[in-house]
C-alpha cells in the first residue's frame, strides 16, 4: 500500500505528518522522501547504515560528423532538449528527461548513443525506533531540473510488501503528479490560512482528477481564519486530524523531534488516522 503525504503549499507540515505517520505503522514500513529538491525527513528519522548511490539517467551523445541532419531527433524531443544550432545539433542536458525518443527515431546506426549522466543522490537507511523503518530519499544535484525523473527513481524502490509512506514535494504540478501517481491514498496537509486554502484547492483538484482517495490534515489549526473546514465539507473530504499551533511543537520539531514524541497523545491520533486510511483503501479496492 502506498500513502502519499502532499500539500500544495510548502511548509504546511508534510514531513511532520509523514514521519509520525510512518512511526505508528505496525506492519513493515518504508518512508520515501520524494521532496527531492530539498529532502529533510532524514533530520527526523535519523537513518542508520546509510548507503548512497548516484542516480543516473541516459542522455544522447551525438556523433556530429556522422549525423545526416535529418533532424528527426529534434522533432521527436518533446522537451526541447535538442536544438537546431546551425551546423550542429545542440544538446541541453538539463532539459533532457531521458525519454529515449531521440536515439529511437534516429535512422543512422551509431549516430546517437545513449550515455550515462549522474544527476543526484539516492540514500537508503533504516530508522531504528521501536521497530525498524526503512528509509529512502532522493536528492537532486544543485541546478538539476528533472524533478519528476528523480521522484520516479525513488519510487522505484517501493516494495509492495511494505506500507510505503511517501513524503511529496510542494506544488500542484508535475512533481506532485509523479509522486502521487499510482498511490492508494493521498493525505493533503494544509493550514487555515489564505495561502493554505488556495494551494489546497489546487492540489485537491489534481488528486480528484486522478481519482485517488484523499483526506486532509489541518496543521497549526488555531492560526488563520480561512474556511478550510468548509471547503472540506463542501467537497466531502474527510478531515483526518487537526493539530493546534503550540510553541512547544515548533521548538521541538525544529530540533528534530517527531510530533508523536513531542505530544505523546498524538500517537493514538496518528494511529487512528492510519487506520482510517487503511479502511478507506480496503473499501475502495474491495
Amino acid at each position: 500500500m502506498k500513502i502519499a503525504v502532499a500539500s500544495g503549499k510548502g511548509g504546511t507540515g508534510k514531513t511532520a505528518i509523514s514521519t509520525s505517520l510512518s512511526a505508528v505503522v505496525k506492519q513493515k514500513v518504508h518512508l520515501l522522501d520524494c521532496d527531492v529538491e530539498n529532502p529533510n525527513a532524514y533530520l527526523y528519522m535519523k537513518p542508520e547504515d546509510v548507503v548512497n548511490e548516484r542516480a543516473t539517467v541516459l542522455i544522447p551523445e551525438i556523433d556530429h560528423d556522422a549525423c545526416i541532419r535529418c533532424d528527426k531527433c529534434i522533432d521527436a524531443c518533446q522537451f526541447g532538449a535538442l536544438v537546431d544550432a546551425g551546423e550542429n545539433i545542440m544538446f541541453l542536458s538539463t532539459l533532457c528527461h531521458s525519454c529515449a525518443a531521440c536515439w529511437t527515431v534516429c535512422p543512422e546506426e551509431g549516430v546517437i548513443t545513449p550515455v550515462t549522466r549522474e544527476f543526484g543522490d539516492i540514500n537508503h537507511g533504516v530508522s531504528q525506533r521501536d521497530r525498524p523503518i526503512k528509509f529512502t530519499e532522493g536528492m537532486l544535484d544543485i541546478t538539476e531540473m528533472i524533478t519528476p525523473t528523480m521522484i520516479g527513481k525513488v519510487k522505484g524502490f517501493i516494495d509492495p510488501e511494505n506500507i510505503s509512506i511517501i513524503d511529496s514535494p510542494p506544488g500542484a504540478g508535475c512533481p506532485l503528479y509523479e509522486t502521487v501517481d499510482d498511490t492508494d491514498y493521498v493525505v493533503l496537509v494544509t493550514e487555515p490560512t489564505v495561502f493554505g486554502l488556495h494551494d489546497l484547492r489546487r492540489a485537491h483538484k489534481l488528486i480528484q482528477e486522478m481519482g485517488i482517495p484523499v483526506g486532509v490534515v489541518i496543521n497549526r489549526s488555531t492560526i488563520g481564519k480561512a474556511p478550510v473546514r468548509e471547503f472540506c465539507d463542501e467537497n466531502n473530504i474527510p478531515i483526518l486530524l487537526e493539530i493546534p499551533f503550540e510553541r512547544i511543537i515548533a521548538e521541538k520539531y525544529s530540533s528534530g523531534e517527531l510530533l508523536i514524541d513531542i505530544i505523546p497523545e498524538l500517537h493514538d491520533k496518528f494511529t487512528e488516522v492510519l487506520n482510517t486510511i487503511l479502511e478507506t483503501v480496503q473499501e475502495a479496492t474491495a
Binding site: I62, V83, A85, E87, N88, M90, F91, L92, S93, T94, L95, T143, E144, M145
Partner: peptide, 9 residues
Amino acid sequence: GGSGSGRGS
C-alpha cells in the same frame, strides 16, 4: 533558472 550544458561549437 537552472543551467544547461550545451555542446555547441
